[in-house]
Design a binder for these strands. Structure first.
Lengths: 233, 233
DNA sequence: TTGTTAGATTTGGTCGACCAATAATTGGAT
DNA sequence: ATCCAATTATTGGTCGACCAAATCTAACAA
């Protein structure tokens, strides 16, 4: 019965304003490098309050579409078509993605991170990794729930890879992975002692600067997760 | 002379508030799942206006640290340590990264996207890719500057891969790549006709569902860029 | 004609007050 | 004692007004 009722579309007004401004850019009215009309004009033109326009511009700034300069104006950065193809809503909305995409992509990044870490790690990186592993062990013996420490170890690997972009991307998807894992209660599946051993293996390979070995160790480590995600979706 | 003067630290007040709230979370005063103190209390406690607190909370919501529920409160999501290790500032600040990291990571993502696209592409994907290639060709013959159309083709490949996360990540780093390319004037280096041919090759491989071939074609296509980035940094 | 400067205007940033929806409290009926 | 409805308090959201910095204008001097 109820499912036949149309879902009420409660559209956020700022999202509407965002797409309006987007149209302004994609139609060519305002080209990259040029200034957006002032907030007051936009507010008047759209028939909304200035605060709504401000919030919309704020979001656009987050996405890197525009850059606001106090007491001067808001300029459109030269990112062009890419962000305008109705894609804005896609960026950073990974939470709707299916678990498989998330895990597959994570594995891709993690393997590369392990490889680069084996090649580029400094001695300080090894210390950091060892510490992270130790903290993970401690947390495990205390509370048998150490998702954050687990992921922290992986983040440290990304750091050791000396590729900031890789690290940033991993950090972008990591929270979503945690969310999904908690949602599906993956933790119960994992054997914590085995995880610990696998972490140690990865660390050894990185320590020995064995790139291929590190990739392999990481692959083994993530195989369980991959299996799980394949079953789900 | 001038370089001996200390640079004036013009710290954004909201960033300070953000770290204050972060401390509130990492110190354990507010655990994941619990509610943050109301905006008014926070404003009073920090001795700032409520708007500043609102803006800070807005940013935290963007980063996925908290979730605001109108007329109810702001709850801390369970993302834990990861976002708190002083890492917030790292996320999405890819623009400071060196070109090599950017290009290396892009190549990693692009090869995987090409592989998955060859495996998963639908007929509609082929139409989209063909159109994107055509638009690129048109723009080239008209203006010999078609960076956006070029990248659009790559985005379409990511779409055809049927891995939303991969696509999102590519879209996150793409604007930065464009920026760097314009900065270093990479466009002059590129031979546009050759690029066109390479795009056609990739499309053919994807069309034939030849995964290995698609990866290879993508590798060839990006090899010039890789060479360039290796020389720079 | 050109360069400079004082004033007016426009800009995004900030603030305090008010709004509607939610949550908490309280009072009474059973 | 328990449950429920009406009331009150609290919450994030919205708005219009004001602020200081940047920009523009134009008048004046060289």
């Amino acid at each position: 019965m109820l499912e036949n009722l149309n879902r009420i579309e409660v559209v956020n007004p700022v999202d509407l304003i965002i797409s309006q401004i987007r149209d302004l850019i994609s139609s060519g009215s305002v080209k990259p490098g040029e200034k957006l009309p002032p907030e007051r004009k936009l507010a008047e033109h759209f028939g909304v309050s200035r605060n709504q326009v401000r919030e919309a511009i704020n979001k656009l700034q987050f996405y890197g579409i525009v850059k606001v300069q106090p007491q001067s104006g808001t300029t459109v950065t030269g990112i062009g078509i890419v962000a305008l193809e109705g894609l804005i809503t896609d960026i950073l909305k990974i939470e709707d993605s299916d678990l498989k995409s998330l895990v597959d992509t994570r594995i891709l990044l993690e393997k590369e991170a392990a490889r680069l870490a084996a090649l580029n790690r400094t001695n300080d990186d090894l210390v950091q990794l060892t510490n992270a592993l130790k903290e993970y062990k401690n947390k495990l013996s205390a509370s048998d729930h150490a998702v954050e420490e687990d992921l922290m170890f992986h983040i440290k690997i990304a750091e050791a890879s000396n590729n900031k972009v890789l690290k940033s991307l991993m950090m972008i998807i990591t929270p979503d992975i945690v969310k999904k894992f908690i949602q599906y209660k993956v933790c119960n599946v994992a054997n914590n002692n085995q995880t610990l051993e696998e972490h140690q293996n990865i660390l050894d390979m990185i320590s020995n600067q064995d790139a291929a070995g590190a990739v392999r160790a990481m692959e083994v480590h993530l195989s369980d997760i991959k299996k799980f995600s394949n079953n789900k979706n």
